Computed example of a mutant assay.
Amino acid sequence: MNSTDRQHLRRCVDLAREALEAGDEPFGSLLVDPQGQVRFEDRNRVAGGDATRHPEFAIARWAAEHLSVEERAHSTVYTSGEHCPMCAAAHGWVGLGRIVYASSSEQLGGWLGEWQVAPAPIAPLPIQTIVPSAEVEGPVEEFADEIRELHRRLYGK
């Protein structure tokens, strides 16, 4: 974890805030190529009723269409929250490289439990349970309070 990683995570948290302000769940993600260029960024877009419109899933689709197998393998996905199982599977299927996340599924589950919010309809499995070979870094504690606050606002707690 270095200053560049933290800079990219900061953008992810900003995208998560944009998502929340647009009426979506607070998640944001970036795809960064091996040269350090941001190739794709997105935020959560589930408010329209399609629960699969996660930014990590959009990144996997975009990468499959626009990057070579080698480019995908050497790229990094940065995200405000650890991939759900659907997004982790998409990541693995298209062969994306390293994943760096600011907050974990375990942290989110703890916050939801504290606020007595029902859990998601799928199990919050760690990325490496879905993609055993994934190179994963996170959570990054310096973002925890800010991300917790975004989720608290989502649930009105």
Rank of each mutant, 00 (worst) to 15 (best):
H54A: 12
V100T: 08
H66R: 15
E56G: 07
E56F: 01
G49V: 01
I99D: 00
G48L: 13
G97D: 04
G97A: 03
G48I: 08
V69A: 12
A89G: 00
V69N: 14
A60W: 05
R98Q: 07
S80E: 01
S75W: 05
I59V: 12
A73V: 02
E70P: 03
T76P: 05
A102F: 02
P85A: 11
H74P: 01
A89Q: 13
G92P: 04
G48N: 14
A58S: 07
G49K: 12
R61M: 10
R72N: 06
A73E: 08
H74Y: 14
C87Q: 01
P55T: 01
W93I: 06
R98E: 03
V100M: 06
L96Q: 01
V100C: 08
C87V: 00
E56A: 15
V69Q: 14
W93Y: 02
A90G: 10
G49A: 02
A90Q: 12
V94N: 11
G95C: 02
I59C: 10
T79L: 10
A90R: 09
V94L: 11
D50W: 05
H83A: 15
P85N: 12
G49W: 07
G97Y: 01
C84V: 08
C84F: 03
L96I: 03
V100A: 11
G81Y: 09
A60V: 08
G49L: 04
A90S: 10
A58G: 02
E82I: 06
H83W: 03
A102P: 00
R72C: 06
S68W: 08
G92K: 05
H66K: 14
T76R: 09
C87A: 15
V69H: 10
E82F: 00
H66S: 13
H91R: 12
G92Q: 09
M86T: 01
S75A: 15
R98I: 04
E70V: 06
A88D: 00
A102T: 03
E82N: 14
G48K: 07
A60K: 13
R61F: 00
A64R: 15
V94Y: 02
T76H: 08
S103Q: 15
Y101S: 12
R53V: 08
R61G: 00
W62S: 02
S80H: 03
G97P: 01
A73S: 15
W93A: 15
A51I: 13
A73Y: 03
P55D: 07
V69R: 11
E70K: 06
E71D: 15
A64K: 13
A73T: 05
W93T: 07
P55R: 06
I99C: 03
G97C: 00
E71W: 05
R53M: 02
G49P: 04
H91N: 09
A51G: 12
V94I: 14
A63G: 11
L67E: 15
V77P: 01
T76K: 07
A90K: 11
V77M: 06
A88S: 08
E82H: 07
H83G: 05
A60E: 12
V77E: 04
S68K: 08
H54K: 14
L67D: 10
G95M: 05
E82G: 13
L96M: 05
G48A: 13
H54T: 12
L67V: 09
S80L: 03
Y78S: 04
P55Y: 06
V94P: 03
A63E: 03
T79I: 10
E65S: 12
V69D: 15
